[in-house]
Simulated scan of single mutants.
Amino acid sequence: MRGRSRTPLAATALATGVVLAGGAVLTGCSAPVQLADPQVDDATRATCTALVADAPGTVLGSPRRATTGSLSVAWGDPPIALACGVAKPEGLTATSQCLEVDGVGWWAQDGVTGTVYTTVGRAAYVQVGVPNAYGSTGDALAELGPVVARHDTLLRPCAG
């Protein structure tokens, strides 16, 4: 894997009402979603910059919102948030359960207010936080999977 931030975006952030860590606090739909950029190498930055630029204008019918990080994107209120180039989450191992949605593998971590999904088997780790308010989170992964597949190189397929 390429270089990663030493501190992963924590799935436990959902327990405090934050979609992803890095200080993401919603203060209103017009305010940018606060997401800090992870420290990444140049190759990961290039991958993530292209992925974020190509992210859809809406997810689950919610419009795209501004974020404070250049390697992240968010939609709606409460925000669905995507962060690219995050560190490998603690607990993610070669034997972790992998959910495949349209050719992209994801590892899920439950939180109190939603679920955080992290890509599996790709050059860069991408996390997507989906609040419970959106119901079926698989639909968000189906909408975001194509942009991940276009920009983040598959290293090994989802094992199950």
Rank of each mutant, 00 (worst) to 15 (best):
A66E: 14
V120W: 12
W75M: 01
G105Q: 03
G91W: 05
T68C: 12
Q97S: 15
A81P: 02
G105K: 04
V59R: 04
G114H: 10
T119L: 08
L82I: 05
T58D: 08
S62T: 05
A53S: 15
C84S: 05
T44R: 12
P78S: 08
T95Y: 01
A108G: 09
W106G: 04
V104H: 06
V73C: 06
W107C: 01
A50W: 00
G85C: 00
V59E: 02
A43L: 04
C48T: 14
L60A: 08
A74N: 03
V86K: 09
L71W: 02
C84K: 06
S96D: 04
G103Y: 02
P56F: 11
P63N: 07
K88F: 07
Q97H: 13
V59M: 04
T95E: 15
Q127F: 03
A123F: 10
T49Q: 13
G111M: 13
Q127M: 11
Q127W: 05
Q109V: 07
A55Y: 11
G57M: 08
G91T: 00
T119Y: 05
T44I: 10
G69M: 08
L99D: 11
V86N: 12
R65Q: 12
L99E: 15
P56I: 05
L60H: 04
A108S: 15
D77H: 00
L92T: 08
L92M: 06
A50M: 05
Y125H: 15
P79S: 01
R64Q: 01
A66K: 13
L60S: 07
D110I: 04
C84P: 02
T113C: 03
T115F: 04
G114V: 02
G111V: 09
Q109A: 12
A50V: 03
A123Y: 03
R122H: 02
K88G: 11
G111E: 06
D42V: 15
A94R: 14
R122F: 07
T49N: 10
V40Q: 13
A53M: 11
G114M: 11
V40M: 10
T67M: 13
V52M: 09
T119S: 09
L51F: 11
L92W: 03
V40H: 11
T67H: 09
T93S: 15
K88N: 13
A55K: 04
L60N: 02
A50G: 15
V101R: 09
T93Q: 14
W75G: 00
D110S: 08
P56H: 00
E90T: 13
A83E: 12
A94T: 12
D102A: 13
T118L: 01
L60D: 03
K88L: 13
T119P: 01
L51G: 12
P56V: 11
A123R: 11
G114F: 06
T93N: 09
G103A: 04
V104F: 03
T47Q: 13
P63I: 05
D77A: 07
W75E: 05
C98W: 08
T118Y: 12
V104A: 00
Q109S: 11
V112A: 14
G111P: 08
T93Y: 08
A53I: 10
S72D: 06
R45D: 13
Y117D: 00
A108V: 04
A50P: 08
